[in-house]
């Protein structure tokens, strides 16, 4: 059993990376921390630096300028580290895909571990997505 992977699923510290979003997913992420959803119950919290992160939540459709920074920030994260595409924009580019300032979807730039769709996904959906990711990782760690 991979200890590293198992440890990763405990108290996930999250870094929030906004790559040209419309702010909506970002606000819903912050909403997760506030009293109604309060994901700090599960040991999850937002961290200020990507160097402390176990998971990176990427939101937004990622334009040319943000893409270079995004790659650099994700490279700085300690590995192993989850990359989660949050919201339709990060998953597919949504209605911004034909734009002149969009390059490619997130999973063509960096490997993505989980996709949480929705515009914006409800906080419940985000929690469900993370739970599914944890279960899949634990199953993989057992092998």
């Amino acid at each position: 059993m991979s200890v590293k992977l198992k440890a990763l699923t405990k108290s996930i510290w999250v870094f929030h990376l906004a790559a040209s979003p419309c702010n909506n997913c970002d606000i819903e992420i912050l909403d997760l921390l506030t009293p109604r959803f309060d994901i700090e119950r599960f040991g999850m919290q937002l961290v200020g630096s990507v160097r402390h992160a176990d998971a990176i939540l990427v939101t937004g459709s990622m334009n040319r300028k943000a893409r270079i920074r995004l790659k650099r920030v994700i490279e700085q994260a300690p590995k192993p580290c989850f990359v989660i595409a949050l919201g339709n924009c990060a998953c597919t580019g949504e209605m911004f895909a034909p734009s002149y300032n969009q390059m490619k979807p997130l999973d063509e730039v960096v490997p993505v571990d989980a996709y949480i769709a929705g515009c914006p996904p409800k906080p419940e959906a985000m929690i469900m997505g993370v739970v599914a990711l944890i279960e899949a990782t634990l199953a993989a760690a057992k092998k």
């Binding site: 040209s20 459709s61 911004f96 734009s99 002149y100 969009q102």
Partner: peptide, 14 residues
């Protein structure tokens, strides 16, 4: 700025 520019005005024309 420029990290959020998505070309919305152009997209609207389509």
């Amino acid at each position: 700025i420029g990290y959020n520019h998505r070309g919305i005005e152009r997209l609207a024309e389509d």
